[in-house]
Amino acid sequence: MTSHGGRRTQAERDAITVEIGYALCSAAFAAAVLFGAVAGPALLFGLPDTVELLLVRAGLVLAPLLFAARVASVLLRFRAADQPSQPGRTSPDS
């Protein structure tokens, strides 16, 4: 339901769909980069076993946390943004 009590328009549903897709793609990219930065040296270089295990596990813990945080931040920011009622127009409260 929208703030005015009616059903969502097709444009509102499309905007939500696009925002969810952006949140998931950007979060997956950020998590992959973080995993590569943390666990990459362990996978590329011959480090001691303990260090390799620590780096890979740290990457496996931090990447999903970053993924969830990124998705939440993008979607909450979208939800909090005051969207104009019509494209190209400002809302009446402004």
Rank of each mutant, 00 (worst) to 15 (best):
G46M: 14
D49M: 12
C25A: 15
V74K: 15
A37M: 13
S85V: 12
S3I: 10
R89K: 12
T17W: 08
L60V: 12
Q10H: 14
A30Q: 06
V61H: 00
G36V: 07
E19G: 08
A69F: 01
L75R: 04
Q86A: 13
R8P: 07
A15Y: 01
G6V: 08
A81V: 03
P92H: 00
T2G: 14
L75P: 11
L75Y: 04
L47R: 04
I20D: 00
L24S: 12
P48I: 03
C25Q: 13
A69G: 02
A28K: 09
T9E: 02
P87N: 10
A80F: 02
G36L: 12
D93W: 02
P87K: 07
S73G: 03
F67A: 13
R13A: 04
V51G: 03
F67M: 10
V71S: 06
R70L: 12
T2F: 05
V61Y: 01
L44Q: 14
P41R: 06
Y22R: 09
D14E: 07
V33C: 05
A63I: 00
T9S: 04
A42N: 10
L43H: 07
S85Q: 13
V51F: 06
R77F: 00
D93P: 01
R70A: 05
A28D: 07
G6L: 06
V71E: 05
G36N: 11
A69E: 02
R89D: 07
A27F: 03
V74R: 15
F78I: 06
C25D: 10
H4G: 12
A27Q: 00
R77H: 01
F78K: 08
A37N: 06
F45Y: 13
F78Q: 10
F67I: 09
I16Y: 06
S94D: 09
L76R: 15
I16Q: 05
R77D: 00
L44Y: 11
E52A: 15
A81W: 05
R7D: 06
V33Q: 10
T50W: 14
R79Y: 12
G36E: 13
A80N: 01
G21A: 15
R57L: 07
R8Y: 00
A27L: 01
L55H: 00
L53M: 15
A32L: 13
F67G: 11
R70T: 15
A80P: 01
A39E: 08
Q86Y: 12
D82A: 02
G21M: 04
I16A: 11
G21R: 14
P84K: 03
